[in-house]
């Protein structure tokens, strides 16, 4: 008799599984919230404040997607992931998308079967070192002790850089940014290396940020972007074009303040298509016409999000650099909305 109960349970589980294997978009809509994977805490990119509200550059992407799909920017469940757990969390369906400064690499895209939908931050690995050591180039670091945050591509880049320059170093792998910082400040390592944006964010929290310099060498390309599972192209498209909408909005001059008047209709047909007053772009995505408008309205366009979270007026103080629009000499280039 016990066996039949067990078989019954098996059947029920099988049925449930069959029912659940629909597209991610339907899942998200049915659930009413978006499960978005973020870091466990990196100021400026994704960190909970003292009220437990998540804020940051990566968080803004999640919120924009939630606003586009669900119409509610707060309908996001943020799932903190570490370098180790992020890919499993995405592959197993625990999260719908991952926006955790993850580098777009060949093997992640092809071998791990993920789909990077775009780049929201062009980064590169840099070095931070106390000014008093008088080092001006990373090539002078022979014999130095280097703190690395584990679980990223950082270890590999570092090993490659030192090997190709034929100089030696001692790696000190550290789990969290906060601990790496403590080690670095106590002099347990000479250099701290991670993505340049992360270095800037970390330096901003020091008591005396001026005592530390970022070395000019950027030893790797780190295009960071949101990613989704391979094979669910409808969902991938939604995330990709939400990101593109944020970028395009900046290019077209649509901001969170003027969006309402622009939504009434403008002379620029691309703005009209973007904001849904012309054409059926939203319908093609399986969303309503105002999806992009909601996404932009949440936190503003790409430029506004950048300025609010990591821009020059924030403690993190990052310049736009590579992340300027292509019209300003940067790399941000959204495909056209038509």
């Amino acid at each position: 008799m016990k066996k039949s109960v067990f078989l019954g349970a098996l059947t029920v589980a099988g049925l449930a599984a069959g029912a659940a294997a629909a597209g991610t978009m339907d899942d998200v809509k049915a659930r009413g919230t978006l499960n978005c994977g973020v870091t466990t805490g990196l100021v400026g990119f994704a960190a909970p404040d003292s009220n437990g509200e998540w804020n940051g550059f990566d968080v803004a992407v999640c919120r924009a997607v939630a606003a586009a799909v669900l119409g509610d920017a707060s309908a996001v469940e943020f799932v903190p992931t570490t370098g180790k757990t992020r890919f499993t969390a995405l592959a197993s369906g625990e999260i719908d998308m991952l926006a955790r400064n993850t580098t777009w690499t060949f093997s992640r895209d092809v071998d791990l079967k993920f789909e990077f939908v775009g780049v929201n931050y062009y980064d590169g690995q840099g070095f931070m070192i106390p000014k008093e050591l008088g080092v001006s180039s990373a090539k002078e670091l022979d014999g130095a002790t280097v703190c690395i945050q584990t679980g990223t591509t950082t270890e590999l880049n570092l090993a490659d850089f030192f090997r190709s320059n034929n100089i030696s170093y001692e790696p000190v792998p550290i789990e969290t940014n906060a601990e790496a910082q403590q080690q670095y400040l106590a002099g347990a390592c000479d250099v701290y290396t991670t993505d340049a944006s992360g270095l800037a964010a970390t330096r901003a929290t020091f008591e005396n940020p001026g005592d530390h310099v970022l070395l000019p060498e950027i030893i790797s390309k780190e295009p960071l972007g949101p990613l989704v599972r391979h094979g669910d192209n409808e969902w991938g498209d939604v995330v990709r074009w939400t990101l593109n909408a944020l970028i395009s909005a900046e290019e077209l001059g649509v901001t969170s303040t003027n969006i309402d008047e622009m939504a009434a209709g403008t002379d620029n047909p691309e703005i009209n298509r973007l904001l849904g007053t012309e054409g059926t772009l939203g319908e093609m995505l399986g969303l309503d016409a105002e999806w992009a408008m909601r996404a932009i309205k949440t936190n503003g366009n790409y430029g506004e999000i950048f300025a609010k979270n990591i821009g020059e007026d924030t403690p993190i103080g990052l310049a736009r650099g590579l992340n300027a629009q292509w019209t300003d000499g940067g790399l941000l280039y959204s495909p056209p909305f038509r």
Binding site: T40, T81, E179
Partner: peptide, 22 residues
């Protein structure tokens, strides 16, 4: 494994926040 229990809270959000870094 990135759960925010007491130690996780300390090592994660609290130490990572700008206010209480250090």
């Amino acid at each position: 494994i990135s759960m925010f229990d007491l130690v996780g809270m300390i090592r994660g959000p609290i130490l990572a926040s700008t206010d209480w870094n250090g």
